[in-house]
């Protein structure tokens, strides 16, 4: 009896979100056929890339049973630092790499506070969210940083195309492939699931739980900073309020993708689907001329329905 139940939920977990995405595609296309035009699909992919990068990192954290509210602020702070470095004449590529490294360090700080400090991830990242945002405002003096030069390489990152595909979408796909491999094929990924499934048993099995957690929060910081680099390039500036409430979209995508907030269960592919569902909702409703106020209502309702379906099966 038990076996049957897990089998069923496995199928839902794997294909439920995907089915929802396909349905969404069909409905929107029927209502407005221009949705399916190649240009719009590419546009959709570009729009989702930033949320996707953040949500990929968030997936690892949520799999351990944690949460990261600070990713939006990490995005903003690393974006501001990158822009600042470029304005002061640093090579754009170097500025981006240093910015990403700083984002990783911010994540590592989260990880150390969570694991060594033994504090709840929600509280830790709520605090660092405020701190990193505050630092962004201090650094930018509350004003956008502009005039970051005209390096083609840098502009490509947010606005360019590679073989006809927007570069942000390419970055998203590459990141997905690397992180999918990391999560599902390496011992690091196995440890991520183990910690979320049973932290005490993992510790006693000799897993360096603290170290893995620090690495995972560092990874989430890195992903947020990469998203920050893309956003900076697209806007050709760093905004002090960039990335606000991005953590919520990322968490929503992870949950939509079937990952359990209590950890241990979920897949990266699900998150990709979750990101695409949110992106498709945004894009589709814009095409259909739904007011942005109503869009929020719909998005919230979709999350509720998804979680409800997820509960029903168990």
């Amino acid at each position: 009896m038990k076996l049957e139940a897990t089998g069923k939920s496995g199928i839902w977990q794997k294909f439920g979100p995907l089915l929802a995405l396909v349905l969404l595609f069909i409905v929107i296309t029927v209502l407005n056929p221009s949705f399916m035009e190649p240009n719009n699909i590419l546009n959709l992919l570009r729009q989702t890339s930033i949320n996707a990068l953040i949500a990929f990192g968030m997936t690892f954290i949520i799999l351990t049973g944690g949460i990261d509210l600070s990713v939006g602020s990490i995005l903003a702070l690393s974006s501001a630092l990158m822009a600042g470095m470029m304005v002061s004449g640093l090579d754009p590529i170097l500025a981006i790499l240093v910015g990403i490294l700083l984002g990783a360090i911010m994540g590592v700080i989260n990880g150390i506070l969570v694991s060594k400090g033994k504090m709840a991830p929600f509280i830790v990242t709520l605090a660092t969210m405020t701190i990193f945002r505050g630092l962004t405002l201090v650094y930018t003096d509350g004003k956008p940083i502009t005039g970051i030069g005209d390096s083609v390489m840098f502009q490509m990152l947010g606005r360019g195309y590679f073989l006809g595909v927007p570069v942000p979408a390419v970055v998203m796909i590459i990141a997905f492939m690397i992180l999918w491999f990391l999560l599902h094929k390496t011992s690091f990924g196995r440890k991520t699931y183990a910690i979320g499934g049973n932290e005490r048993a993992s510790r006693i099995s000799g897993i360096k739980v603290d170290r893995v957690k620090v690495a995972i929060y560092g990874l989430a910081g890195t992903m947020a900073a990469i998203a920050g680099a893309i956003l900076t390039s697209r806007l050709n500036s760093a905004q002090p309020t960039a990335g606000q409430s991005y953590e919520m979209d990322a968490i929503a995508a992870v949950v939509l993708g079937g990952t359990s907030l209590s950890g241990g269960k979920g897949r990266l592919f699900g998150t990709l689907v979750g990101v695409l569902i949110i992106g498709t909702l945004n894009n589709g409703m814009n095409l259909l001329g739904v007011s942005s106020f109503y869009q929020q209502v719909v998005k919230g309702a979709v999350i509720l329905i998804a979680v409800l379906l997820d509960r029903k099966k168990s």
């Binding site: 011992s187 196995r190 499934g197 005490r200 099995s205």
Partner: peptide, 23 residues
């Protein structure tokens, strides 16, 4: 509570303390 990851398969549980040799 401390011996097993209940959501893991038999294989994954056996593999857990041995990841160094399998990976």
């Amino acid at each position: 509570e401390e011996g097993l990851i209940l959501d893991f398969s038999v294989r994954e549980n056996i593999g857990l303390p041995n990841l160094k040799s399998f990976a």
